[in-house]
Design a protein around this nucleic acid. Structure first.
Lengths: 218, 218
DNA sequence: CACTAGATGTGAAAAAGTTAACAAGAGGTG
DNA sequence: CACCTCTTGTTAACTTTTTCACATCTAGTG
């Protein structure tokens, strides 16, 4: 460990889920050990970055050997706290909402959408996998009862602030928002935005302006 | 302009689409001028960062006045090259694919999904908005004919490499990949990944580990 | 068991990105 | 038209992130 009590850098933290996912894939394929260089080829992140990232969590590897896959999984599993089920609410069951509801959070059975809400009476009562879509009026009570702390918002952007306020009032502290447009939340609530249009534009912008192989994200 | 011929920083480039989107919103609301400080409140990015970002494209504002909204839109529109239609192919028309196909790239009528492909005979022939889903075997010919250079991939991850190879062979140079798992592409092809599971995990990780208001992305 | 090949973890340097702070200049008012 | 207020654009400091390069250590071999 580089230093006791030194906080994990933001950039490192954002890479953990990807590390975790790939390690699970490796394990499934029966790979028992991995070297930073090989892992680097696989996930397209420089090996030095990988080693530096890993080092924040202790001395996880062995010189001249590499890393033990199942041990790494154990470590990252603990960091991501996958032992505890994450109960998630889906708010807004339009096309995208339905798709997400049916989406399989692959290899992550601790991520569970446990309730879904919409205002549209056409949709309310419908089943997404094994959960029944409820009316928004049930939201607060339901979220409290289910112990949900994470919400996925796929509502039209003009409603996203109102809906965010509602789920926060019910106890949600983490929001994944698919609507473009920032929402205002208290300090203790985290929001992650996924805006398909801007992602697409960013991609096209880089495609048109950088001929060489320049990575966009990580 | 800070310096002639100095390249736009990566971080700045990634923020352009968001700037553009908000400016369009402002214009729609009839706002004619905006100060970096007010814009900052709106999009939750420090005003210094905004001014610095803007400065890369010239002296866009006026002291003691702010920025002219429609002029900024003009500038960013040009940077994002919105005058030219982007013709996009959708490959994989499952739940998520359908949702994306019906998704309205709001305020961006230059982003157009012009064809869609799947292998599933249940889906082939179906209509998504006004385009008919075709069999994968038509992909190459169609993409060439339509002049498509961007593809959205929503196929199961085990096929994503094969499909990527196919669209690239047909002339695509920008790929938005929803499947987890990096794909291998030539230098001239750009890939942007959107992995819902890792986004969700990142969000939850930050929610559980950083009580204070620490931004995850920008 | 000694030796070689090869990998890790990290100090130090470089690169990239952010923020503070302010000089210069425009806007608007009386 | 002079003045006060306010905002930009940018210089410089600072922070974060990436990358290099290598001392140190382990695995595996003969």
């Amino acid at each position: 460990m580089e230093k006791k009590g030194c906080p994990i850098p933001n950039a490192t933290a954002r890479r953990i889920p990807m590390y975790y996912r790939y390690l699970k894939t490796l394990e499934e394929s029966g790979v028992e050990r991995i070297k930073s260089k090989d892992f680097s080829k696989m996930i397209q992140i420089p090996s030095a970055t990988i080693r530096r990232d890993f080092s924040h969590f202790g001395e996880l590897g062995r010189s001249g050997y590499g890393y033990d896959v199942s041990f790494l999984i154990e470590v990252f599993s603990h960091i991501l706290n996958t032992e505890v089920e994450k109960r998630i609410a889906l708010v807004g069951v339009g096309n995208l909402g339905k798709a997400l509801g049916r989406y399989n959070f692959k290899n992550n059975d601790h991520l569970n959408i446990v309730c879904a809400f919409d205002t549209d009476s056409e949709v309310v009562g419908e089943k997404i996998k094994d959960i029944v879509v409820e009316d928004m009026s049930c939201l607060e009570e339901r979220i409290k009862k289910e112990g949900v702390t994470t919400a996925i918002l796929t509502v039209p952007s003009k409603y996203s602030q109102t809906v965010a306020d509602k789920v926060i009032a019910a106890g949600v502290t983490a929001i994944l928002n698919f609507a473009p447009g920032r929402i205002r939340v208290p300090d203790n609530v985290k929001v992650q935005y996924i805006d398909l249009t801007t992602e697409l534009q960013t991609l096209i912008y880089f495609d048109e302006n950088f001929t060489s192989s320049k990575q966009i994200n990580f």
